[in-house]
Write a protein that binds this DNA or RNA. Structure first.
Length: 572
RNA sequence: GGCAGCGUAGCUCAGUGGUAGAGCAGGGGAAUCAUAAUCCCUUGGUCGGGGGUUCAAAUCCCUCCGCUGCUACCA
């Protein structure tokens, strides 16, 4: 059997994520996972929280909690939000797990043994006031180029110049404001990425045709600009400790950089999954000949691309062990909010918990986000657009079709699948169109072209409305009951079809639609049969159960209220 | 500053050498099963500006303008 391994970029632990994070990694990965399961592939869908690093330590400090407790709480929040969005992870792990610690240390030992790690001493910013080393961007001061007085140590936001923290005039800690800033030597491990350029280039070249242009162009850019060796350790507390046997004991107290251990957590979380169910198959997904039948998909926003096309592959290649590299890498652009950026600090835009707090089915979000995924360029969420799409596509085109067909069946055919008559030319033409559209829909999902896939799904709903208009059972019923019966039987079969086709993107609505016709399995299988067969499978005489109103519309008042509420400035 | 992506109808976007497309919105009509929901027809664009290559350019090349992102210690 074909095996499909899917990972979503790990959401950082520091607070609930906004819709941009959802649309750029977790949600499309979920749609693929469901699609893959529906087709009968053995599927493993993995995600986790990315917990280590300075921002976590500082957020915990601010919250007055120890880091572990802070992460435990945030993990629970994020896991809950993901569940409520019906993200069907087989396992939602944590990069702070024992499994990840073990694997991260293992990879580091392999790299050290193979000579791909080097101990180097570099100058780091130390804040005496905070009693800790600070990442460059946590030092602020006056820009030596433009005089902007809140320039960050890595880059001036005002003149966009790249800076070194030692260049700042009047440097101070962004954490405490302390001006007691010291530059101290610190010893770190560097990963010799530069030695892997030919191998990486060959790797990227081999995926020119099956990765988005966005992804390969980012990867080539890094290679073309001259790949530098990268520090993979940090002077912080919260992380995977560097083992004593690496670096001749010179790295005592250091931890690995979060970007070193985070991708390894894809594997770590797989082991967490296996350990939790006492199953020792985790390695067959990742390692050696046993993983040959696995196709591995990664999903991420464009900011993550360098780490997945360069950093992580170097870790894997440098281990000289046969760990699996990604096969299909899907990258996304940004989702904007009402023409601007989502802002975590100003709480501008819709976050996962916000979306869940509104009286809207989760499937509204899932459908809109996939239909408007930022694939070829950044895309923009506006309440007006969201309401327009939901009201038209889900309420009018899909929901109303289910409603009109099932209601008519109850009114005129005793709520049972009518038995009279045979399918004719109209039905044959419909089947031919749907065969073609479903093929296209399937291929778009296989090709990870979600926006186009949703367009095709919508076109399928429209085709059903066109058919029922031509078949006009309400007209024929008065003079030719048999002809009306044929139209309604086809209509009911179409409703059943929608339960199948909509499941990967709208699991709850799909289940409700399917249940209108008959009980739904937990995984609603993909329709592989020709439509002439699939759309003629409901047993005549079988009772149906028209659902309560499937969807309801978003009102102008709601649009106005929510636009105000999430603007990030009006909220006081 | 450098690099990358983007710029196509009022809006959101497809289209990478061969007569400019879809959905929404707008206009007209049909139908009355249905959540006034649907279906049919239709208005609308010198494809960001300019130059070039070509029998032919939204598409390839040059240049300019605009927007966005990245620029390696935030993740």
């Amino acid at each position: 059997m074909k095996r499909v391994l899917i990972t979503s970029a790990l959401p950082y632990i520091n607070g609930i994520k906004h819709l941009g994070t959802l649309v750029g990694s977790m949600l499309p990965a979920d749609v693929l996972a469901r699609f893959s399961r529906a087709r009968g592939h053995e599927t493993l869908f993995i995600c986790a929280t990315d917990e280590h690093g300075t921002p976590t330590e500082l957020a915990a400090l601010e919250a007055g909690k120890d880091v572990r407790t802070f992460c435990d709480e945030q993990y629970a929040l994020q896991k809950n939000a993901c569940e409520r969005f019906h993200l069907s992870f087989d396992h939602f792990g944590r990069s702070s797990s024992a499994q990840n610690r073990e694997l991260t240390q293992h990879f580091a030992r392999q790299l050290w043994k193979n000579g791909f790690l080097e101990v180097r001493t570099s100058k780091q910013v130390y804040s005496i006031g905070d009693g800790r080393f600070l990442p460059d961007r946590y030092v602020i001061g006056t820009c030596p180029h433009c005089g902007y007085d809140r320039a960050r140590g890595d880059q001036c936001e005002n003149c966009t110049r790249v800076l070194d923290p030692v260049d700042l005039i009047n440097p101070r800690s962004a954490v405490s404001g302390s001006t007691e800033i010291d530059i101290r030597d610190s010893t770190h491990l560097f990963l010799k990425q530069s030695e892997f350029v030919p191998q990486l280039r060959a790797f990227i070249d081999s995926h020119r045709n099956d990765w988005p242009n966005l992804v390969t162009s980012i990867a080539y850019k890094w290679l073309d600009e001259g790949l530098q060796d990268r520090g993979i350790t940090r002077d912080v507390e919260w992380g995977v400790p560097v083992p004593d046997d690496i670096g001749d004991g010179k790295l005592k107290g250091k931890v690995f950089y979060v970007w070193f251990d985070a991708p390894i957590e894809y594997i770590g979380a797989t082991k967490e999954w296996a350990d939790a169910i006492n199953n020792n198959s985790w390695k067959t997904w990742w390692y050696g000949p046993e993983s040959k039948d696995v196709t591995y998909y990664e999903f991420m926003g464009k900011d993550n691309v360098p780490f997945h096309t360069v950093g992580f592959p170097v870790t894997v290649m440098g281990s000289s062990e046969p760990w699996k590299l990604v096969d299909r890498l899907k990258g996304f652009n940004w989702l904007e909010y009402e023409g601007g950026k989502f802002s975590t600090s100003q709480h501008r835009g819709v976050f996962m918990d916000d979306a869940l707090s509104l009286p809207l089915p989760v499937d509204y979000w899932r459908y809109w986000l996939m239909a408007n995924a930022p694939e070829s360029s950044d895309s923009n969420f506006t309440w007006e657009h969201f309401a327009g799409v939901i009201n038209k596509d889900l309420n009018d085109v899909l929901g109303n079709f289910v409603n009109r067909v099932t209601k008519f069946c109850v009114a005129r055919f005793e709520g049972r699948v009518p038995s009279e008559g045979e399918y004719g030319e109209e039905e044959k033409a419909l089947c031919a169109e749907l065969d073609q559209r479903i093929k296209a829909y399937t291929e778009f999902l296989e090709g990870l072209e979600f926006r186009k896939a949703m367009g095709e799904l919508r076109a399928i709903w429209v085709a059903a409305n066109e058919y029922i208009t031509r078949a006009a059972p309400w007209t024929h019923f008065k003079t030719d009951r048999t002809r009306a019966a044929v139209g309604i039987r086809m209509g009911l079969n179409l409703v059943h079809l929608f339960g199948h086709l909509s499941w990967p993107v709208m699991p709850t609505a799909a289940r409700a639609i399917h249940t209108a016709i008959q009980e739904a399995p937990s995984i609603i299988p993909w329709p592989d049969e020709p439509m002439a067969q699939f759309l003629d499978q409901l047993e005549p005489g079988q009772a149906i159960n028209p659902p309560e109103v499937l969807f309801s519309k978003i009102t102008d008042e709601q649009v106005g209220e929510w636009r105000m509420r999430f603007s990030g400035t009006a909220a006081i």
